[in-house]
Lab assay of single mutants.
Amino acid sequence: MEVRTIKVFTTVDNINLHTQVVDMSMTYGQQFGPTYLDGADVTKIKPHNSHEGKTFYVLPNDDTLRVEAFEYYHTTDPSFLGRYMSALNHTKKWKYPQVNGLTSIKWADNNCYLATALLTLQQIELKFNPPALQDAYYRARAGEAANFCALILAYCNKTVGELGDVRETMSYLFQHANLDSCKRVLNVVCKTCGQQQTTLKGVEAVMYMGTLSYEQFKKGVQIPCTCGKQATKYLVQQESPFVMMSAPPAQYELKHGTFTCASEYTGNYQCGHYKHITSKETLYCIDGALLTKSSEYKGPITDVFYKENSYTTTIK
């Protein structure tokens, strides 16, 4: 009895394709271990004539594949690729409408935090270190965002349907971005203890939790000093293409032309909904596939993004 075979390709990165001759009487799992086709788990399936010449994702289970996976995804987590594939199996079914010149995501599976993050990423200057993220990001900007969303979920250790947080998501993504040249110098002034300067680099240099107003941050924000008295913390120097200011959701007025974009969060910790506000020729609110415009805006804002380049204080 002759062994019926077909020729397929296996890959971990969709760049390096490895030619395989597979036995049609055995499952993919018996031949390769966990195997995925377009995100779908085909591990328990036997090869079919229609699979001839198709590319299958496999887990990096030998040295060659491990090197290829690390170079593309910059992670050695053995569960990463499987999590990416199972997320992709959902995100490829989502709709990605162009809204006001940006790629958004039609609401499904509690994905409003991903839509808000995706919209924000198209408006701030950011370059990702893992080629996987950078490639998928370019495709997302062009309207094909399924891979990018699935990668975000995998890097953030999230599953489809789980509630997510924009600030946490951005923080994970910033860790995989090139923020080497970003720098922030802060000064804390206390009447009792004097003053202390701190220099922050990388992710810490672009994120701040405690106030939404970048102007206020430049002037000074009140913080408790270690001595128990009130101290003032203010920005001395900022070198970065953008800054992200966050605070627990509270009524906040966004003035046209003073910011790049913002995240609105309605609801409580267990259950809520994100919308995205962007400042173009007027203010726009993007909620999944829905767009509304207004000249002014007041609502429960939790993150505001500002364009920056270089700032030095005039406070002496």
Rank of each mutant, 00 (worst) to 15 (best):
2 E>V: 09
6 I>Y: 10
8 V>M: 15
8 V>H: 06
10 T>G: 06
12 V>R: 08
12 V>L: 07
13 D>L: 05
15 I>F: 15
16 N>D: 07
19 T>Y: 12
19 T>K: 14
21 V>R: 12
23 D>C: 14
24 M>V: 13
24 M>N: 11
24 M>Q: 14
26 M>N: 12
26 M>F: 08
28 Y>N: 03
28 Y>C: 05
31 Q>W: 10
32 F>P: 05
32 F>V: 13
34 P>K: 12
35 T>H: 00
36 Y>H: 06
36 Y>R: 05
36 Y>T: 05
36 Y>A: 05
37 L>D: 14
37 L>C: 11
37 L>V: 10
38 D>L: 09
42 V>Q: 13
43 T>H: 14
45 I>M: 13
47 P>W: 05
48 H>P: 13
48 H>D: 12
49 N>G: 10
52 E>A: 13
52 E>H: 13
53 G>S: 13
53 G>A: 13
54 K>W: 14
55 T>I: 08
55 T>W: 07
56 F>D: 05
57 Y>E: 05
57 Y>N: 08
59 L>W: 08
59 L>S: 12
60 P>M: 06
61 N>G: 15
62 D>M: 07
63 D>T: 11
65 L>A: 10
65 L>Q: 07
66 R>Q: 10
66 R>H: 09
66 R>V: 11
66 R>A: 14
67 V>P: 07
67 V>E: 12
67 V>D: 13
68 E>M: 06
68 E>S: 07
68 E>L: 05
69 A>V: 09
69 A>C: 14
70 F>I: 09
70 F>Q: 11
71 E>S: 09
73 Y>L: 02
74 H>F: 07
75 T>S: 13
76 T>W: 10
76 T>H: 09
77 D>K: 06
78 P>F: 10
78 P>C: 10
79 S>Q: 09
80 F>H: 03
82 G>Q: 15
82 G>Y: 07
85 M>F: 04
85 M>W: 14
86 S>F: 07
86 S>T: 11
88 L>I: 08
88 L>Q: 04
90 H>R: 12
96 Y>W: 03
100 N>K: 11
100 N>W: 04
100 N>I: 03
100 N>H: 13
103 T>I: 10
104 S>W: 01
106 K>H: 15
109 D>I: 03
110 N>P: 04
111 N>M: 03
112 C>W: 01
112 C>A: 02
113 Y>C: 00
113 Y>P: 05
114 L>T: 03
115 A>C: 12
118 L>V: 10
119 L>D: 02
121 L>V: 12
122 Q>G: 04
125 E>F: 04
127 K>V: 10
128 F>Q: 03
129 N>D: 08
129 N>E: 15
129 N>Q: 12
130 P>L: 03
132 A>T: 04
133 L>P: 02
134 Q>H: 12
134 Q>P: 04
135 D>K: 11
135 D>V: 08
136 A>E: 13
137 Y>V: 07
138 Y>M: 15
139 R>F: 08
139 R>S: 13
140 A>G: 03
141 R>S: 10
142 A>T: 13
143 G>Q: 05
145 A>P: 10
145 A>I: 02
145 A>E: 04
145 A>T: 02
146 A>H: 07
152 I>D: 03
152 I>S: 02
153 L>I: 07
156 C>F: 03
156 C>K: 04
157 N>F: 06
157 N>L: 01
157 N>Q: 08
161 G>R: 05
161 G>P: 05
161 G>F: 03
163 L>M: 14
164 G>W: 03
166 V>K: 03
166 V>P: 02
168 E>M: 14
169 T>R: 02
169 T>D: 02
169 T>P: 03
170 M>H: 04
170 M>I: 08
172 Y>H: 11
176 H>T: 05
177 A>E: 04
177 A>I: 03
178 N>E: 15
181 S>A: 15
182 C>F: 06
182 C>K: 01
182 C>H: 01
183 K>E: 07
184 R>S: 14
185 V>I: 13
187 N>K: 13
187 N>Q: 11
188 V>M: 10
188 V>P: 03
191 K>T: 14
193 C>D: 01
195 Q>M: 14
198 T>G: 04
198 T>S: 11
199 T>M: 12
199 T>W: 04
200 L>Y: 14
201 K>V: 13
202 G>P: 01
202 G>C: 03
204 E>A: 14
205 A>P: 03
205 A>K: 03
206 V>E: 00
206 V>K: 01
206 V>S: 01
207 M>W: 06
212 L>M: 05
212 L>G: 03
215 E>V: 06
215 E>Y: 05
216 Q>S: 09
218 K>V: 06
220 G>I: 02
221 V>E: 06
221 V>M: 10
221 V>A: 03
223 I>P: 01
223 I>G: 13
224 P>T: 15
225 C>N: 00
226 T>Y: 13
227 C>Y: 00
229 K>W: 09
230 Q>V: 13
231 A>C: 08
232 T>N: 06
234 Y>H: 07
234 Y>M: 11
237 Q>G: 06
238 Q>F: 01
239 E>N: 10
241 P>H: 07
248 P>L: 14
248 P>E: 09
248 P>D: 07
249 P>L: 01
252 Y>N: 03
253 E>D: 09
254 L>W: 03
254 L>E: 00
257 G>A: 08
257 G>L: 05
258 T>P: 00
258 T>W: 04
258 T>I: 06
258 T>D: 13
258 T>N: 12
258 T>Q: 12
259 F>E: 01
259 F>M: 02
260 T>L: 15
261 C>L: 00
261 C>I: 00
263 S>F: 02
263 S>V: 08
264 E>H: 06
265 Y>K: 00
265 Y>E: 00
267 G>Y: 09
267 G>Q: 08
267 G>V: 08
268 N>Q: 13
269 Y>C: 14
269 Y>P: 15
271 C>L: 14
271 C>H: 13
271 C>T: 07
272 G>I: 02
272 G>Q: 03
274 Y>A: 04
275 K>G: 01
276 H>L: 08
278 T>F: 13
281 E>G: 08
282 T>A: 14
284 Y>I: 15
284 Y>E: 12
284 Y>F: 12
285 C>P: 01
286 I>F: 08
286 I>M: 06
288 G>Y: 00
293 K>H: 09
295 S>R: 15
296 E>I: 12
296 E>V: 12
297 Y>Q: 00
297 Y>K: 05
299 G>M: 02
300 P>A: 11
301 I>C: 03
302 T>C: 08
303 D>E: 02
307 K>H: 12
307 K>G: 08
307 K>Q: 15
309 N>T: 14
311 Y>G: 08
311 Y>I: 10
311 Y>D: 08
311 Y>E: 11
313 T>C: 15
314 T>Q: 15
315 I>V: 13
315 I>N: 15
316 K>Q: 15
316 K>D: 15
